[in-house]
Structure formats: structure tokens, C-alpha cells
């Protein structure tokens, strides 16, 4: 009888203690619950936004090269410059239609870097200063008369040219 009473008191004490602790922390738990709900809503909104952004990214028009422009610097006459532009354009035109993200920057530079051109009966050596890879791609070339012993062609991949 006494043991049963003891058990009863024990459970009553347990319940009373649990209730006391619960009442002490109920407000904080309530705040945490609502914060959790808010975070769930935020997460849902962010996930939807991310999914929409990913769908937009997947459907974006592939950034393709539409035109190539050559800017030539150097102490050469205007006729030779025009001829060199034409020659460089012929080579660089192979880039048109290519996807910008898939192009290798080094290979793009190597198209014209240290290439020897002949115009107006003279040989010229082109050096790529920089390239802007965009739908309207722009090459900046420095052109100078080629040294007599220059073999032309690509003398290795460029070190100083920059791609933007």
C-alpha cells in the first residue's frame, strides 16, 4: 500500500516537475516553433526562386559569337592596315557561330598571335594584345614589319595577351 502510494507520488512529482519545466520554457519553445515555420516558408520561397533561376539559365540563349572586329595598332601605312584587317578577319571569322563559354581562350588568341601576314609586298608580324570574347568579339593586334629571319606562324601560345 505504501509502495503504491510512493509510486503515485513519484509520478505526480514527475508530472508536476515536467509541467513546471514546460511552463518555464513554453514561451521560448513557441518562439522557436514559429521561427522554424518562418524558416520553412523562406526555404520554400528560396527553393522556388532557385528552380526558376535554374530554368531561366537552362533556357538562356547560348552566348554565340555574332561578329569579329579587329583593331590594329602599329607604324604601318593605311593600305597595309586595311589588307591586314581583311586577312585577320578571314582567320578570325571561323569563330563566328561558336559558343563563347565553350571556346578555349588560349586557342582563340593563338589564331592570330605571332602570325605572319603579307600585305603590299611586305611581311608583317601580328601580336595579340588582348581579346574580348563576346557576341561582338574584338581582337587588339600590334603589327610590325616582320624581321627578315622570322619564320611566321604561331610561335607558341601567347604569354602576355589577355582575354576578357
Amino acid at each position: 500500500m505504501r509502495a503504491a502510494r510512493g509510486w503515485g507520488l513519484l509520478f505526480l512529482g514527475l508530472l508536476a516537475g515536467a509541467l513546471a519545466v514546460h511552463l518555464c520554457h513554453a514561451r521560448r519553445m513557441e518562439e522557436l516553433y514559429w521561427e522554424k515555420e518562418r524558416l520553412k516558408v523562406d526555404l520554400l520561397e528560396t527553393s522556388e526562386r532557385l528552380a526558376r533561376s535554374e530554368a531561366l539559365w537552362a533556357d538562356r540563349p547560348g552566348g554565340k559569337i555574332c561578329s569579329v572586329e579587329i583593331a590594329i595598332e602599329g607604324e604601318i601605312d593605311d593600305y597595309a592596315k586595311l589588307e591586314l584587317e581583311r586577312l585577320a578577319n578571314e582567320i578570325a571569322a571561323t569563330l563566328i557561330g561558336g559558343t563563347i563559354g565553350e571556346l578555349e581562350a588560349d586557342l582563340v588568341i593563338a589564331l592570330l598571335h605571332r602570325r605572319k601576314f603579307s600585305a603590299e609586298g611586305k611581311d608583317y608580324l601580328a601580336v595579340v594584345n588582348w581579346v574580348v570574347l563576346a557576341p561582338q568579339t574584338l581582337f587588339s593586334l600590334s603589327v610590325s614589319p616582320a624581321p627578315a629571319d622570322s619564320s611566321g606562324g604561331n610561335g607558341g601560345l601567347p604569354g602576355g595577351a589577355a582575354v576578357f
Binding site: L15, E30, Y33
Partner: peptide
């Protein structure tokens, strides 16, 4: 009170 305790144990808002 006991319902609130149960709600807290089941991760429901206790005060509400």
C-alpha cells in the same frame, strides 16, 4: 496543461 506538454513533445506550438 497536459495537452500543452504533449504538444511540446510532439514539436507543436505549446502555448497556442
Amino acid at each position: 496543461l497536459m495537452g500543452s506538454l504533449g504538444a511540446a513533445l510532439m514539436h507543436r506550438p505549446p502555448l497556442k
